[in-house]
Amino acid sequence: MSDLFASGRIIDLILVLIVVEGLVLALVHRRTGRGLPPSDLIGFLLSGFLLMLALRAALVGAWWGWISLALTGSLITHLADLLWRWRRAGRRPPG
């Protein structure tokens, strides 16, 4: 079991599950009209995906630059998602 973590394979599994989750949620919305539309899913799923990439890179001892790049990407997608939601709700973002 420890090899699953040390090799980063556990994160590979989580990344696949994030993609599957996004596809299933988008399909459910398309077929039933229920749930969040894909445009509302992409921000938080991509942010989480990038966080998992950063964790995987750290687990396997990757260069710090790759970890930093993934974390920065996650921050940017998270902030963009917040701004998108704030504007859709008809409110002005702080600042």
Rank of each mutant, 00 (worst) to 15 (best):
W63S: 09
A26I: 09
A54F: 12
R30L: 13
L55G: 15
S7W: 05
S74A: 14
L79N: 12
W86E: 06
L17Y: 09
R92F: 05
I18Y: 06
L71G: 02
A58G: 14
I67K: 08
D3T: 15
S2Q: 15
S47P: 00
V24H: 08
S47W: 02
A80V: 15
L83F: 05
P93D: 04
G33C: 04
D81V: 01
S74C: 06
G48F: 01
L17W: 12
T72M: 11
T32R: 03
D40R: 14
L71Y: 01
L53C: 10
I67N: 10
E21L: 01
S47Y: 01
F49P: 10
A58W: 14
M1E: 09
R85G: 06
R31E: 08
I14T: 08
R9C: 05
L25Q: 01
R31V: 11
L71K: 02
L82R: 15
A26E: 13
L17P: 01
L51N: 08
G8H: 10
R85Q: 12
G43P: 02
A54T: 13
F49D: 05
A26Q: 10
S39I: 04
L25N: 00
G90V: 08
W84A: 03
L17F: 13
I11E: 05
L50D: 07
S39F: 06
P38W: 08
L50H: 06
I42D: 11
L53R: 07
W84E: 02
A58E: 15
G33L: 03
G43K: 02
G33N: 06
A80K: 13
R87T: 09
L46Y: 00
H78I: 03
L15W: 07
S2W: 09
L15Q: 15
R87S: 06
R56Q: 14
T32V: 03
R88W: 07
R85W: 07
G43H: 05
R88D: 07
L4V: 08
D81C: 10
H78T: 12
R85K: 13
A58H: 15
A89W: 10
R87G: 02
G8W: 09
L25I: 00
A89D: 09
G35K: 02
R30M: 13
W64E: 11
T72S: 11
F49H: 06
R30C: 09
D3W: 12
M1R: 11
A6F: 01
L50P: 04
G43S: 05
I11S: 03
L79D: 13
G90R: 06
L41Q: 11
L23Y: 04
I42W: 13
G33D: 03
G22Q: 05
